[in-house]
Amino acid sequence: MLDARTRRLVAPALEGLAARVDRPAVTPDRVTLLGLALGLGSAAAAAGALWIPALVLWLLSRVADGLDGVLARRRARDGQPPSAAGGYLDITADFLVYGATVAGVGIGYGGSLLPFVAVLVAYYLNGATFLAFSSLAERTGRRLDDGRSLSFLGGLAEGTETVLVHSLWLLLPGSAGTIAWVWAAVVGVSGLQRMVAGHRALR
């Protein structure tokens, strides 16, 4: 819901950072892998109840996740064609980081894992809806082009909300179970929205 606005707000900062790190050795794929390593480090720290290190690593991983695409588009303007492999690596790394972070918080929280399982099921639903839509939209000429590698269906819960909620339960680990139940409901509703919107768009 907030992604379009967030991208506009953070674009100047990410463009500036991309200009600073734009060196031959710093490729978009390597930035993606750095974000993956930071995200998995955040999940491991959360599992050990090291909440502040987990939060710092999580936020740094999300900066890297935003930077890789900006760097790829910067290279494309300089004549280097965009890589479908890079987009594939990016989305698979995101899914791994999101899932690992949910698991890490659930373990570190020390209470019932049920709310975190509910979040993972909701993530599974959303991932299925927009990945299936992206593939079928490409084949049928209904691709939604917002500058990203895949066609994303908007919804109540998007990347910005995910970053905020994951940050919130690292800041308030004692309330992580309650936050997870609310977030699972929001993400579940978003998945249902995407199911309906995708079906209508492909008819």
Rank of each mutant, 00 (worst) to 15 (best):
Leu171Gly: 00
Leu202Arg: 05
Leu192Pro: 02
Ala19Glu: 13
Ile91Ser: 14
Trp58Cys: 06
His166Tyr: 13
Ala185Gly: 06
Val26Thr: 12
Tyr124His: 15
Leu170Gln: 03
Leu136Met: 13
Val182Trp: 00
Ala49Gln: 06
Ala197Ile: 10
Gly69Glu: 05
Gly35Thr: 03
Arg142Asn: 10
Leu71Ser: 02
Ala19Ile: 00
Pro173Val: 05
Gly106Met: 10
Gly35Glu: 01
Gly154Met: 09
Gly155Thr: 08
Thr160Phe: 14
Arg5Cys: 05
Leu14Ser: 08
Asp145Gly: 11
Arg5Ser: 11
Arg20Gly: 04
Ala184Ser: 09
Thr6Trp: 13
Gly110His: 07
Ser167Asp: 03
Ser61Thr: 01
Arg5Glu: 11
Leu36Trp: 02
Val56Lys: 01
Pro53Gln: 14
Pro173Ser: 10
Arg77Val: 08
Asp22Phe: 10
Gly48Tyr: 11
Val70Leu: 00
Val121Phe: 10
Ile107Glu: 06
Ala128Glu: 14
Asp90Gln: 02
Arg200Ser: 06
Ile52His: 12
Met195Asn: 02
Leu164Lys: 05
Gly99Ile: 09
Ser135Lys: 15
Leu150Trp: 15
Pro81His: 05
Ala4Gly: 11
Ala128Trp: 15
Leu113Lys: 11
Val63Pro: 01
His166Ser: 09
Gly106Thr: 07
Val26Glu: 08
Val105Gly: 00
Thr160His: 11
Gln80Glu: 15
Ala197Met: 12
Ala72Phe: 04
Ser151Thr: 08
Arg148His: 13
Arg7Asp: 14
Gly48Thr: 03
Gly191Arg: 00
Leu125Thr: 06
